[in-house]
């Protein structure tokens, strides 16, 4: 049995994927896709590099998500995405994943080989990463038959400090924030104090208040912080699907019946405009106090 890990240059993902590979058993090697990612060329090269593998594991970045089903198809295998658990049962690969916007979970059994899986890498306890990842070798001229595409411009959002998926503390705002000002004047100062990353619900992103890269949820980023502070977020299951791996959820919401309180460990029922400034003040005082001790 051979496992191949495909990495798009992310250390944390590598450990999670290595952990998943250990659960499946067998020998593991890793391929690092570095440099100029181009969809069709990278896919062609990966098809060649992955021949003979039984299981191919990818993380949950956008490149992995778009490559995985196509890689499976070219190799005659099957793809399962967004896995949070893997197992081998009677020789077959099984993947646990959320469905119906996080309202249910399913166990999916792969019926072709290779199994090409993209996983929420942070959901897996780290394994001993393969000693060294071999860099993907490319031969751009090798296949001229197929039409291609070209990524001609890459724009990295200025607000992105580190990957949201790797954040330990996240401050997130929803529809109830009411506009970009609430994010800028109330939530961002709080995030700064805590060294936290900013995030948002789909409603806030769709409204254009914050960049789409902030979106957390079923169709946004899947995060796994130690602390997730959900401010004015109702907590629809589609949002919860993105934070199911968060260790501590704090909810600040004016509506006591908001579903978010069913998932939160700590909560305050009140207007965030009142709570957040006070919270910043108290945290500053606590910080000063700690400092003196």
């Amino acid at each position: 049995m051979t496992n191949v890990l495909i990495l798009f240059a992310e250390d944390r993902a590598a450990q999670g994927l290595a952990g998943a590979a250990e659960q499946l058993g067998g020998e593991t090697r890793a391929i690092l896709v570095d440099g100029d990612y181009q969809i069709e060329e990278t896919l062609d090269a990966l098809v060649d590099a992955c021949r003979g593998a039984d299981v191919i594991l990818l993380a949950n970045d956008t490149y992995s998500q778009e490559i995985a089903p196509r890689l499976a198809h070219r190799l005659g295998g099957a793809c399962v995405g967004d896995g949070v658990g893997v197992a081998r049962v009677d020789g077959r690969v099984r993947v646990t994943r959320q469905v119906y916007g996080g309202k249910a979970h399913a166990v999916v059994e792969v019926r072709r080989s290779p199994a090409v899986l993209w996983l929420r890498a942070r959901s897996f306890s780290g394994g001993a990463a393969a000693a060294s990842a071999a860099e993907l070798s490319r031969d751009p001229g090798a296949r001229s038959g197929r039409r291609s595409t070209r990524i001609v411009e890459r724009n990295v959002s200025a607000q992105t400090h580190a990957r949201l998926e790797d954040a330990q503390v996240i401050i997130s705002g929803g529809r109830g924030i009411g506009g970009p000002e609430g994010f800028r004047d109330e939530l961002e100062p709080l995030a700064k104090m805590l060294g936290a990353q900013m995030a948002a619900s789909r409603a806030a992103c769709d409204a254009g208040w914050v960049p789409p890269t902030w979106q957390v949820g079923q169709t946004g980023k899947k995060v796994a912080p130690e602390l997730y502070v959900a401010v004015a977020i109702t907590g629809a299951s589609q949002h919860m699907a993105g934070i199911s791996e968060a260790r501590n959820i704090v909810a600040i919401n004016i509506d006591p019946d908001a579903p978010i309180f069913k998932h939160a460990r700590y909560g305050i029922v009140d207007d965030y405009r009142k709570v957040v400034p006070l919270l910043r003040e108290r945290l500053t005082n606590l910080g000063n106090h700690e400092g003196k001790r």
Partner: peptide, 22 residues
């Protein structure tokens, strides 16, 4: 053949929210 759903379940969550002041 591709894959089969072999199990579907609604997860049981037992989180109790502790309501606090600021």
């Amino acid at each position: 053949d591709y894959y089969e759903i072999v199990e579907l379940a609604i997860p049981q969550k037992e989180t109790r929210c502790e309501l606090l002041d600021v």
